[in-house]
């Protein structure tokens, strides 16, 4: 073995090829089957996609680096399930390009934060976290409330998402900007189209409390309120495993 190596280390290209082969095996064995084994991701026929407004909110969540302190992945541990809700399933992030499972909980997990607090609480918390949670170490995000949301290019966002595999329809792409506006303007004439395209469960309301304009605050709160609500697959799974569903 050492004799072989004694010869190998005299050849540059041979050595390079050896490193490439030896280093490729692990990743190949662990990653490739995740795309081919069907059981990797559960079926969830009720799974819906992010609306353009929620997607814009998700991009703000990414932009501000929220994932550095908040996970979106409840592990299969008793205390986590009791603290945050049913453990996360793979299917729940199947439209997440990229995933935001996170690696650190400086703040709590957000996988099922949707619906736990009112819009007004979320807005107040983002504007000044210590006004509602006195010992919080979260930064204030005051600029979200005063910045208008860019919605004119949301069609491009949906198109790119479709190219990587999210089944947005032509109709959704064509109306992306109008739907973002409509979802945050409940009394306007574009609100009906959002429900028509994304389903009755879609939240249509002024998330930041000011229906006269669509801000980045509207988008981020719309996103936070949908976390854990895109499918009921995890709730059903829990009902089966605990017997509560019978």
């Amino acid at each position: 073995m050492f004799g072989f190596h004694y010869r190998l280390e005299r050849r540059t290209i041979g050595f390079v090829l050896a490193v490439m082969v030896v280093s490729s095996i692990g990743g190949f064995v662990e990653i490739a089957p995740l795309f081919t084994i069907d059981e990797t991701v559960e079926d969830a026929p009720d799974m819906r996609m992010y609306t353009p407004l929620e997607l814009a909110g998700r991009n703000i969540y990414i932009r501000e680096g929220c994932y550095a302190c908040h996970s979106q992945m409840i592990r299969t541990l008793r205390d986590e399930v009791e603290r945050y809700g049913p453990y996360s399933l793979a299917v729940e992030s199947k439209y997440d390009h990229p995933m935001l499972w996170g690696s650190k909980r400086t703040g709590p997990d957000l996988a099922r934060i949707g619906g736990k607090y009112s819009d007004a609480w979320q807005v107040a918390h983002l504007m000044d976290p210590r006004a509602v949670v006195p010992v919080s170490v979260m930064p204030a995000y005051t600029w979200l409330g005063r910045t208008a949301l860019r919605i004119d290019d949301l069609g491009l966002h949906l198109t790119a998402m479709r190219r990587v595999g999210v089944p947005y329809s032509d109709d959704m792409i064509a109306n992306a900007s109008a739907d973002a506006y409509g979802q945050a303007t409940p009394d306007g004439d574009r609100a009906a189209g959002v429900v028509e395209r994304y389903g009755d469960a879609t939240h249509v309301r002024s998330f930041d409390g000011d229906p006269s304009r669509v801000t980045e605050m509207d988008a981020i709160v719309a996103y936070l309120q949908i976390l854990g609500q895109l499918t009921d697959a995890a709730g059903k799974q829990e009902a089966v495993t605990t017997g509560n569903g019978q």
Binding site: V41, S93, K94, P98
Partner: peptide
């Protein structure tokens, strides 16, 4: 841009 991978495959690729 949007990552080519999503969810569990993206997570594994990212931590690989």
């Amino acid at each position: 841009s949007y990552s080519a991978f999503a969810g569990v495959q993206d997570a594994m690729t990212q931590w690989w």
